[in-house]
């Protein structure tokens, strides 16, 4: 089981609904974010300008480095959804996971002395519902499901994108075999994929 997000950047308009929906569903504190929408660009010179939006959150890495470094076991995989989550009662706020995460997915909440992150809305997905960011995406750019299941909606979506244009399927750069699971779809008709630096 590899539950993860598939984000179609050809559809994303950078409206930040996913950011707001996440905060609302999970009661995320003011100034804390479990997901972001990064403006990529504009690149080039007028009139040949490209730009796209890159929503990021926990990439649900197959070899998550945050799990390896966590000294208390607070960072663990949810038994049901397989998502990497943080047990607030066990977290001691050492921030080793923040240092280890290549994707800036974790935030230290000082007044609670805990680290928080996207849980893929485990409280919803455990019951078969979609994460809030997926459910509320205005353009249907976000999908969620099991990438290891060839019959799942996400697997079929990625397969269709690959069939249409094999170079349209991307992932964030991997610093050392962490294997980020989130899949991004960006075809050249929208913009040229650029690895964030």
């Amino acid at each position: 089981m590899r539950n993860a997000l598939v984000i179609d950047l050809d559809r994303c308009t950078g409206c930040d609904t996913c950011v707001v929906a996440c905060k609302h569903e999970n009661g995320v504190d003011l100034g804390v974010y479990w997901n972001h929408v990064i403006p990529m660009g504009p690149y080039g010179t007028y009139p040949d300008i490209q730009m796209y939006w890159l929503p990021t959150q926990c990439q649900q890495c197959a070899n998550a480095p945050c799990l390896e470094v966590c000294p208390t076991g607070a960072s663990h995989r949810d038994d049901v959804t397989g998502a990497v989550v943080v047990d607030a009662d066990t977290c001691i706020g050492c921030q080793a996971c923040i240092a280890a995460c290549p994707y800036g997915a974790r935030t230290y909440v000082e007044d609670k002395n805990v680290v928080q992150k996207c849980t893929l809305c485990s409280q919803l997905t455990r019951d078969g519902k979609d994460p809030a960011c997926v459910h509320n995406c205005c353009t249907g750019a976000r999908l969620w499901g099991d990438l290891d299941d060839p019959d799942s909606e996400v697997s079929k979506y990625v397969a269709a994108a690959k069939e249409k244009d094999p170079e349209s399927v991307h992932a964030l750069p991997d610093p050392g075999d962490v294997k980020p699971s989130t899949v991004f779809i960006l075809s050249k008709k929208t913009a040229e994929w650029r690895d964030p630096e």
Binding site: D16, V19, K23, H36, I38, T56, A99, G104, A105, P196
Partner: peptide, 21 residues
Amino acid sequence: LDGDFIQIVHAVSSGVHGYGL
């Protein structure tokens, strides 16, 4: 020297491009 592998994502996480939410 604790710069991160992908700077831009961490810059956003740190609130450089905050949304005011």
